[in-house]
């Protein structure tokens, strides 16, 4: 893997994008395996399909630019 090819990408005001196969533990310790070439992990806590993103972050107030 080269330095400009991260496998974990934080999307601005959005989810954490994962490239490739990962096992993701949620807050309760339950483990979920990725099933897609890329996966998006919820970071806003509002997704109905956690640990995966369902776009709910867009319904929240956008963070103001610093």
């Amino acid at each position: 893997m080269s330095a400009d090819e991260p496998d974990v990408i934080m999307c601005p005001d959005g989810p954490m994008l994962l490239r490739g196969h990962h096992r993701v533990a949620d807050e309760s310790g339950d483990v979920f395996e990725t099933e897609r070439p890329f996966s998006a992990v919820c970071r806003c806590g509002k997704s109905a399909t956690r640990p995966w993103c369902d776009g709910s972050h867009k319904l929240l107030r956008r963070t103001k630019p610093a």
Partner: peptide
């Protein structure tokens, strides 16, 4: 499409 396109959106925009 709820879950898949939440991923595809980020892929299409950023990568």
């Amino acid at each position: 499409h709820v879950e898949a396109d939440a991923v595809h959106e980020q892929l299409a925009l950023r990568l």
